[in-house]
Amino acid sequence: MRRILIMGATSAIAEATAREFALLGDALMLVGRNAERLQAIAEDLKLRGAKQAETYVLDAREMMAYPKLLDETSLRLGGLDTALIAHGTLSDQALCETSIETMLNEFRVNGVSAMVLCAELANRFEAQGHGTIAVISSVAGDRGRQSNYVYGSAKAAVTTFTSGLRQRLYNKGVRVVTIKPGFVDTPMTASFKKGPLWASPASVGKVIARGMILGKPVIYVPWFWRGIMSIIKLVPEFVFQRLRI
């Protein structure tokens, strides 16, 4: 039985992944901002087979509260060995371009807070000699594009941070998993036109849970995004700057 912390547990991808762990009978700590939504998800996960489903209300920007969150999680679950960091927002790029406050806030929510939580988890898992830290980054972090480069650069920071952390912890029995979803049909993207590149949260959740259990270093989900992003990364900057993507 895994003892799993899920940060941003009301997000569609996190909830879908939590259902996979519930089927396996794991114990879960669900963290998010909305108490009644967390409670509804916890009840659902218990019916689906979770050994335990606890809730904890916290805004991810309250980073000083992370040590207390992890203490409380270990206490209530009887330990902690797995974490999925899944919170985030879909930044309004246009607003980020005109408001310093918005840009800083988006960077804090989508980048800094995930890194701070990773750092705190890393020290604890290193000390206990085992554990898995999974973080949802994004294909948007693989290359900056005009449509969402504030969000993208926050995710790029997460990708780079987890890459280094993975090396540091490799011989300490701790796995670090960087997850890069492509287009996922979540409430955040309900009004977008969907094509063949879109995946459902349920299918994405399955891939993420399996990747976490196997301790894979980097997961593109769906898998074909690895190929798409390889090509996008290869485009020379003097060409890329002219593209409208």
């Binding site: 009644e36 409430p187 309900a190 009004s191 969907k194 879109w198 995946a199 459902s200």
Partner: peptide
């Protein structure tokens, strides 16, 4: 995947605004 808002018979129709429901408290 099938475009959300498309009926099973796939007959054409006018555009619709799509709003996702996320929870029963909304």
């Amino acid at each position: 995947m099938n475009q959300p808002g498309t009926a099973w018979g796939r007959l054409p129709g006018a555009p619709q605004r799509l709003v996702a429901l996320t929870d029963r408290f909304q």
